[in-house]
Design a protein around this nucleic acid. Structure first.
Length: 306
DNA sequence: GGCCAGGTGGCCA
DNA sequence: TGGCCACATGGC
C-alpha cells in the first residue's frame, strides 16, 4: 500500500485517515510551554528525528486535506532515501496513523465517559513516543511529581546529555541515547534535581537497553500484552503504571491501561462530579466497556484535564 | 503552609 | 495478594 509520495525534492506527503485532526493533535502537543523535543510555530512542527546515527530535521504541516507535508530541512541529498523512509515511519508511529479509530468512536457514542471527550477532541490521536528509552525515561521522570516539573526535569536531562542540530540559529534537540545515560553515576543525574531513586532507575534502564536485555523489538515480539507487561514490571523502577504507560505510548498495545494514574482518576471524578476519586474497583467496572481500547479511552480522558 | 503530583519498592500479615 | 509507608520536592 502506497502511504507516502514525494512531490518535490525535499517534501514528502503522508495521507492521513479520515478520523484525524492535525489541529487537535497540535493542541495536545502544545500543552506544555516547556517541551524541549519539538517546536511549533504557525501550526507547523519542527523536530529533529534520529534514526540510527542520522538526525534529520523536519517541518510537519497540514496544507492540504487529509495530508501531512513533511519538509526535510537537512539530509536533503537523494541518496538518503532509506533515512527518509524511516523518518516517515517514525512520524506515522508518532501520530499513530495506522490505527483505525472507527471502532473506538463507535463504542464512545454510547459511553458516558467517552462521549464528551470524543466529540470535543475528534481526530485526536494517541501521540506516541516511538523510542523505547525515551518512553521509559519519560514514564520514570513523571512518577509521583506534577507534570510541569516532569517537563522541567526532561529539559534538564535533554540539555545536559542529549544532542542537538542547529538550523537557522536555533537548536533542535534529541533525547539522550541509552548509551549516553548508562555510563553516568547517580551523582551526575542528582545534579539535575531529581530524586536518587529516579537517578538509579534511569541509569538502570539505560544499562538494560545498552546490554540488549530489553529492546522494543523483543517486547513487540512477545505479541501478548500480559507477557510484555510482566517483562517490563520486572525492571527496577518500572511498576504497573509505567509499564502500561510504555505499552500504550511506545509499543502501541491498545489494551494497555495505566489504571493507577491519578490523572485518569481525576478525569472520572470530574465527569461524574464526584466528591472523592473513584476506587480501582469502580474504574474496572467502568472500563469493562472499553475493552481493547483502554489506551485510547485513557488518552481522551486525560485530554479533559490538560 | 499544606496538599497534591501522569508511583515504586520494600516490608508485613 | 493486598495494605501500609518512606521517598522527596516543585507547583499552586
Amino acid at each position: 500500500m502506497e502511504h507516502s509520495r514525494e512531490v518535490f525534492k525535499n517534501v514528502m506527503m503522508i495521507h492521513t485517515p479520515k478520523e484525524f485532526s492535525f489541529a487537535e493533535n497540535l493542541n495536545y502537543l502544545q500543552r506544555s510551554p516547556n517541551e524541549c523535543l519539538f517546536t511549533i510555530v504557525d501550526e507547523k512542527i519542527y523536530r529533529a528525528i534520529r534514526v540510527g546515527s542520522e538526525t534529520t530535521l523536519v517541518k510537519i504541516s497540514a496544507e492540504e486535506e487529509s495530508t501531512l507535508a513533511i519538509h526535510f530541512l537537512n539530509n536533503t541529498s537523494p541518496e538518503n532515501k532509506d533515512v527518509r523512509s524511516k523518518v516517515i515511519q517514525y512520524i506515522r508511529e508518532w501520530f499513530d496513523l495506522d490505527t483505525d479509530l472507527l471502532p473506538f468512536y463507535k463504542l464512545a457514542e454510547t459511553d458516558p465517559f467517552l462521549k464528551r471527550p470524543v466529540s470535543q477532541f475528534y481526530g485526536l490521536r494517541n501521540m506516541g513516543i516511538p523510542e523505547l528509552f525515551e518512553a521509559l525515561a519519560w514514564g520514570i521522570l513523571g512518577q509521583q511529581i506534577n507534570l510541569g516539573y516532569a517537563y522541567t526535569l526532561k529539559r534538564r536531562l535533554v540539555e545536559k546529555y542529549g544532542t542537538y542540530i542547529e538550523w537557522n540559529g536555533s537548536k533542535y534537540w534529541n533525547f539522550p541515547t541509552p548509551e549516553d545515560i548508562a555510563i553516568l553515576n547517580v551523582e551526575d543525574l542528582f545534579e539535575l534535581k531529581m530524586t536518587v531513586k529516579k537517578c538509579e532507575y534511569l541509569i538502570g534502564v539505560a544499562q538494560l537497553l545498552v546490554n540488549d536485555v530489553i529492546s522494543k523489538e523483543k517486547l513487540l515480539a512477545l505479541k501478548n500484552i500480559n507477557e510484555a507487561e510482566k517483562t517490563l514490571v520486572k525492571i527496577r523502577g518500572i511498576g504497573p503504571w509505567t509499564a502500561n504507560y510504555v505499552l500504550m505510548r511506545c509499543l502501541r498495545f491498545q489494551a494497555a491501561f495505566p489504571i493507577d494514574d491519578v490523572g485518569l482518576h481525576n478525569s472520572i471524578k470530574l465527569l461524574l462530579e464526584m466528591e472523592q476519586k473513584p476506587t480501582k474497583e469502580e474504574i474496572r467496572k467502568y472500563a469493562a466497556a472499553w475493552k481493547n481500547w483502554e489506551s485510547y479511552a485513557t488518552f481522551y480522558l486525560w485530554r479533559l484535564l490538560y
